[in-house]
């Protein structure tokens, strides 16, 4: 595993000599180890839910933490991909890998269209535009003939991976989800630490200066938007296969709010923060499921507290203590 990571980071041009810092490699190995042990200690479906939302939050954080763009409509790509992959698996009879792929392609297309429009406005307007587009996807999902309205698409078959490996058991499916999650995370890590990621950081810090240096910032912003939407789609499509369900919850604005909250708790602009945030929020929802609307109240309180007192997030604070970027 270490060797694989090092060869991958070796491609990264100028940073080749640095490679992946030792503590990052250690975290990746730690995640892999924890991921391999987790299903033996915890309920596998629960861990899969955490992994899906962690990937979703990491994809969102790529846009917010590294591109500096707050999208308040990421549910559109997560839920849109969930619907498409559920439809592909159930109605078209696609095997899971192709079903997930079609969801990912759909979210990439959606991200390209919405992203190209949204980056025409900055800051707060950008957030409002993305939210409005996501609401459009919500209304579409409510009315479109193939989405099943309030019921959503239920009983999606998990099928056989590559036509051979049955995913009927939670256990075999779990390792597929773990592989998707780690693959997605490594890709995001790679993007952040590539020259492309450095330009993004420059745009986030000072866009006029990046423009004056000759970067076509809009192209970079659109590219990171599409990447983020696509990876959010990967998370959503996987979620649809895991829970065998795509529903209106996945495209609702509260889902967009949840992913912001996960990123905020874990730490915006940290590689590993959103994973922690997703674990915290999913665990909380799991334990407080019986409390009804109080979950919303608690989430609102966490939002307020995080914004006022805890803007760095869990991993952000850890990184400051360790004096190392995480």
């Amino acid at each position: 595993m270490t060797a694989a990571i090092e060869t991958q980071s070796g491609i990264a041009g100028q940073q080749a000599r640095a490679g992946m810092p030792a503590h990052h490699a250690a975290i990746f190995i730690g995640l892999l180890a924890a991921g391999l042990v987790a299903p033996f200690l915890l309920y596998p479906v629960f861990v899969m839910k955490v992994l899906c939302f962690a990937l979703f939050a990491c994809a969102f954080n790529l846009l917010l933490g590294y591109g500096g763009l707050l999208s308040f409509g990421h549910a559109a790509y997560f839920g849109g991909a969930a619907y498409v992959s559920a439809h592909a698996a159930k109605v078209w009879g696609f095997p899971p890998e192709l079903a997930i792929l079609s969801g990912v392609v759909a979210s990439a297309i959606l991200g390209t269209v919405f992203g190209a429009l949204a980056i025409r406005r900055q800051g707060i307007y950008f957030a409002m535009v993305t939210l409005a587009f996501a609401q459009m996807v919500f209304f579409f999902s409510l009315q479109a003939p193939f989405t099943g309205g309030e019921d959503g698409i239920q009983a999606v078959p998990r099928g056989n991976l590559f036509g051979v490996l049955s995913l009927r058991s939670d256990f075999s499916l779990y390792f597929v989800v773990l592989a998707i999650f780690l693959g997605g995370l490594l890709l995001i890590y790679r993007i952040i630490h590539s020259p492309f990621g450095q330009v993004l950081k420059a745009i986030r810090e000072n866009e006029p200066r990046a423009i004056s240096l000759g970067y076509r910032t809009n192209r970079y912003k659109l590219a990171v938007f599409v990447l983020s939407a696509t990876l959010a789609g990967l998370a959503g499509a996987t979620k649809a296969i895991v829970f065998q369900l795509a529903s209106l919850t996945d495209v609702h604005w509260s889902m967009s709010g949840e992913v912001v909250l996960m990123t905020l708790i874990g730490g915006m602009g940290t590689v590993f923060g959103p994973i922690v945030g997703a674990a915290v929020i999913v665990t909380m929802q799991n334990y407080l499921a019986t409390m009804g609307a109080w979950v919303t109240v608690i989430q609102g309180c966490i939002f307020v507290i995080c914004v006022l007192l805890f803007r760095e997030g869990v991993v952000g604070v850890l990184a400051r203590w360790l004096k190392k970027p995480l």
Binding site: L70, A293, V297, Q299, G300, C301, V304
Partner: peptide, 27 residues
């Protein structure tokens, strides 16, 4: 308390407040 920060924090704070008000009344 947020005026010296990025405008986005104001959006997030007021979003949290909206969740609280809606949640309490829904209960």
């Amino acid at each position: 308390r947020l005026y010296h920060l990025d405008h986005l924090y104001g959006l997030l704070l007021t979003f949290g407040l909206a969740l609280i008000i809606q949640g309490v009344l829904r209960n």
